[in-house]
Design a protein around this nucleic acid. Sequence first.
RNA 1: GGAUAGAUGGCAGAGUGGUCUAUUGCGGCGGUCUUGAAAACCGUUGAGUGUAAAAAACUCCGGGGGUUCGAAUCCCUCUCUAUCCGCCA
Length: 425
Amino acid sequence: MLKVSFIKKNKKKIFLGLKKRNYYKFYIINYILILNKESKKLKFKLDNLRYYINFFSKKIEFFFKKCEKEKIKIMINYSFFLKKKRKEKNKKLKKINNKIFENLIKIPNIPFEEGKKKNNLLDIDNKIYSKKEFFLKKNEKILSHWELGNKFNLFSTKIGSIISGNGFNVFINKGALLQRSLIQYFLDKNISSGYIEYVLPYLVKKNSVYGTGQIPDKKSQMYHINYDNLYLIPTGEVPLINIFCNKIFKESELPIKATTYTSCFRRESGSYGTKVRCLNRLHQFDKVEIIQINTCKNSYFSFNEMVNHIKDLLISLDLPFRIIKLCGNDLGFTSALTYDFEVYSPGQKKWLEVSSVSNCTNFQSNRIKLKYRSYNGKIKLCHTLNGSSLAIPRIISAIIENYQTKNYIIIPKVLIPYMKMEKLL
RNA sequence: GGAUAGAUGGCAGAGUGGUCUAUUGCGGCGGUCUUGAAAACCGUUGAGUGUAAAAAACUCCGGGGGUUCGAAUCCCUCUCUAUCCGCCA
């Protein structure tokens, strides 16, 4: 959520930023500014009324002690009149402030401006980081992950659909082991890079999904439990960021680095076709998540660090992947800058998004009141960053497609200690 | 599901109708002393609106509403938290 004071001072910047997102509802911005002016005027009048009411009440006390009853009566009459006025104006003010808030939460974050600041962003030269060898011979047919899953009995969306309906998957035997190994491997890697592990609730309060910006933007994409008014988390980022709700860090304590493994739940209404085929898109999937919290000065260092971390993970798995900087149009609601990581799926002949690293600047921390006390003693909003490390089902499909041979699937080197085997037969 | 207690500044915690303009302690920032540090001592220290910056002034004691000339304090309501009982992995 943007601050009104920020909008006031940076109107042009915001218009430019929103244009990049193809967000043209500038009237909302103007409306907010008009309402803000009105609110200021009213506040001024209210302050004056307040002042006189306080003034009279003190006089009353004074006369009361002197037992001057007639003067008290006059004072009370004055006050009574002022009080009525105050109530009316107060109601108006609250209405206006509510309207400002309602409109404010509809505005997405402003995209990162390149070049202006000295935040040396990591170069991504549209390079494809590639696995050197492919294990199939030229004349052998490349199978898709659903064919492989069937062939080696690793998972079944059919069984999933029997239990829970379309869009749910069941991992079986070695498939389940592969998922568990990946989770363990990713967590180990994150922890050794300084991320603290958390195990977190999958059901969260409305306040939490508001805090990370899923409400109002992504409300219809989340599962909601009416009975208890709780939401199923669409990503581990939600509980992981909300741990730090209302916190004030010392600058010396930053950056905070945290990681968690959770299942994620998404309704995915509106998705169809090959996009949702098998493991490509599920209503429930598992993911290891990392976040960082840093100062406004250093958040882009954190960003680079996270991008490099994910890059290393993918390189260690020896999968062909590319990094894409999202243009304003594709940016998530809360993000100012996002890099997507896509892994190549030879069976489907397309790229699968397995991670995205975002800097949400102070957009989320303004909502959850996450601040830090800087070295000079002043309190400022933190910057929050998040990234997947990584989305499990898509990594699994990429691994089995890239590592397939005619008779078995090779296990990537780094996973062998976890799987305690070298191939899936 | 039943019962009770509670929500006060960065944190702890006092305050039950009018000097609350919120006591105090810890923490933070600045200084003295010291080769440096610790300790001790001294000073300073919440947020918001306002302003070019300041100052004045006002608002803010979980949210909303009410009683009153006057509310952190009384009443209603909502949200959240804790404890006990019941049920249960």
